[in-house]
Design a protein around this nucleic acid. Structure first.
Lengths: 213, 213
DNA sequence: TAGATTGTTAATCGATTAACAATC
DNA sequence: TAGATTGTTAATCGATTAACAATC
């Protein structure tokens, strides 16, 4: 399976992002080698799962020593496309949209916000860092001109599908949906739900069932 | 299995939040009955999965008609604890922390932000809506006084575990972690990762593999 | 009644874990 | 060498789907 990069299950991809975050930290601390057991302990997984996951990468560990941290980091960066830079547009200039447009972590990881849009005329023209909030009418052209691949949806649930359709028609390739609403899209477009509110509801459930015990 | 409320798998809980969002919309539109097939089609699932999931609720559908929308909504609200109000503290008064503290959707769903904290003395004292950014030193007492159950972590990755430990020591019951860092906590405390950056990395991977095909 | 839809059991599918030979 | 750790196969576990009797 070595290096067979496509068609990894979503569950594996999700963990690869965790391995990357961890290994970047370790490299920062000057750690040279890391074993599947250490990774597993740090992230609350089994070493079997870690080795199984890492076997999908185009990179091998070494018996008795583990994985070379720098090499593992590069292989994960490679697999996840974390070395690529992406053009991103944010739709919705409310608190959340503006915060995401300003979020330094995104830019540091290569997700460059190229525009922020809103349908509310009172918001259009406002500055958000280096950007200016623009009208939804400009969205399709802006997506094409900036070759934006990713759209972040920070609009009310009722507007989410319509905006998604507009983004998709303009050629966007992936959508990060922050609304607690399901969005349908053609297969060629990936939609990932950020699920912040849903996560709070999950917490709510977990706390209640923990108390019931 | 009817009404056996605890120990539902995480995957089921995740879908219950989607059912709730959908059914709330449907009720708003005046829809009275909904079938497992309709729910499945709306959310991209199979009707089997939907029926299996809903069978965990303390609520039954009716052959030939489906589920009464209002009753289903109430059962989901009940199961997820969406009828409860929660006290929440936000730690980290950067762009993201401030946006979350101001996010209307949270309050509307019963998650009441009771305080926002930061370690940066330049941020302390600033207004965020009706709140004032307070020093981390005030955090433990504020958690106790407001009986906060949930802490939202919007701090840099390097600070996340330390802040989580402080929240936990102060008696918090659940943590929503927005940093791309793993956090360890005792079993009695639930940690859910918001994974916004991780979701972008997943999108990045999905777009690249789609292009490779 | 006939038809449609639930609730549930059984079958399938996929993901995680255990085990161990290979190997450094 | 002896011991530790990988990579991978096989076993287990859990979640999804199919199927269908019960039922309205």
């Amino acid at each position: 399976m070595k290096g067979d990069s496509s068609h990894l299950p979503r569950s594996v991809i999700g963990r690869l992002t965790k391995y990357l975050a961890l290994v970047q930290d370790l490299c920062g601390e000057g750690v040279e080698w890391v074993s599947s057991h250490e990774i597993a302990d740090s992230l609350g997984l089994t070493s079997s799962t870690v080795r199984q996951d890492l076997s999908h990468l185009d990179f091998s560990g070494i018996s008795k020593r583990g994985y070379k941290a720098a090499g593992l980091r590069e292989a994960l960066v490679q697999e996840l496309g974390a070395d690529t830079t992406w053009s991103v547009v944010v739709v919705g200039a409310g608190n959340l949209g503006r915060a995401l447009a300003l979020h330094e972590e995104f830019a540091r990881r290569g997700f460059n916000i190229r525009g922020i849009f809103d349908s509310d005329s009172r918001k259009i023209g406002r500055r958000v860092g280096a950007l200016t909030v623009r009208s939804m009418r400009d969205l399709p052209n802006a997506v094409r001109r900036t070759k934006a691949e990713i759209g972040i949806l920070a609009v009310p649930p009722s507007a989410a599908q319509g905006v998604a359709d507009l983004l998709i028609a303009s050629g966007i390739k992936g959508v990060l949906n922050l609304a607690l609403t399901h969005i349908t899209a053609p297969k060629r477009v990936t939609v990932i739900d950020a699920r912040i509110v849903a996560s709070l509801l999950e917490l709510s459930h977990a706390i209640r069932t923990a108390q019931a015990e």
